[in-house]
């Protein structure tokens, strides 16, 4: 039996009903055009050299010692930023979680985020220059911690406030002093918050590029990718982007695995 394609379409239009799924279409379209398509382009670019399918771009990158160094340096700076954010953010989140007005103060901590981060970073640079502090790795780290610490505090605060007070009481009841209560109960129960915080800080910091340039001319991996694309080296730039993506996915997976068996991570 033959079917008229035109008839089929008109049938479809007739049967069209405004279901809940329909409302997702604009976003699906947006995702396809601005996320999936660029990823495909990057993937194609990475394996395309002189119009032919090859691994030439990978080989070129592997031979480029400077880029590898930058990659290692980026991961190092990302790790140090994350550790600093955790070291500074945890006590803050812990203190605020035990305060009645804690949630209000958390909002104060988030306030700077409402200012565009470029403006903030430029302002920080102006402050450094005014104080005649030489720009370098130290100032870059400061800028990173300053920019990303709210992303550490917020998930930590959420997790810590949601820990039932009775757990701490039960531990104290069983003979634990305050330090032991913290080490044996509060800290393990806040692991999901720590993991969310690490994901929220580490992943953006290893791929950041503006802060490092503005606050010290330190070259990070994000800057390298930026540079490659500016110089028309799309192939190598795409390979580097893929490596970045792989790192992001890998760290995400590792952290999720580490978090297994805990209460569900509150990646808000």
């Amino acid at each position: 039996m033959k079917t008229n394609p035109l008839k089929k379409v008109s049938q479809k239009i007739k049967n069209f009903r405004l279901t809940r799924g329909v409302f997702a279409w604009p976003y699906v379209l947006f995702l396809t055009v601005f996320v999936v398509l660029p990823l495909v382009i990057i993937l194609v670019n990475a394996f395309l050299a002189d119009g032919k399918l090859s691994f030439a771009n990978f080989i070129a990158l592997a031979k480029d010692g400077a880029s590898i160094k930058v990659l290692i340096n980026s991961i190092f700076i990302g790790a140090v930023t994350t550790i600093l954010c955790l070291a500074i953010g945890y006590p803050v989140a812990y203190t605020l979680a035990n305060m009645k007005t804690g949630s209000i103060i958390v909002i104060l901590f988030l306030l700077p985020m409402w200012v565009n981060f470029l403006v903030r970073t430029l302002a920080a640079r102006a402050v450094f220059e005014a104080l005649s502090i030489p720009l370098g790795e130290g100032t870059v780290l400061f800028g990173m911690v300053y920019n990303y610490i709210p992303f550490m505090i917020l998930p930590l605060h959420t997790t810590l406030t949601n820990i039932d007070k009775s757990f701490g009481e039960a531990a104290a009841d069983l003979g634990a002093d305050r330090v032991t209560v913290f080490l044996k109960v509060t800290l393990p129960l806040s692991v999901p918050g720590i993991i969310s915080g690490i994901i929220m800080v580490f992943i953006p910091t290893i791929s950041t590029f503006a802060i490092s340039q503005l606050l010290g001319g330190v070259h990070l991996f994000g800057d390298s990718i930026h540079e490659k694309f500016i110089h028309g080296l799309y192939g190598v730039g795409s390979v580097m982007s893929l490596i970045m993506l792989a790192f992001v996915l890998l760290s995400n997976m590792l952290l999720k695995k580490f978090n297994k068996g805990e209460a569900k991570a509150s990646i808000w």
Binding site: D164, E169, A170, A171, D173, V185, L189, V191, E262, A263
Partner: peptide
Amino acid sequence: KVNTVFQRYALFPH
């Protein structure tokens, strides 16, 4: 030297 059984047990989930 007292121990408590809590209303909602408060067993350590971890």
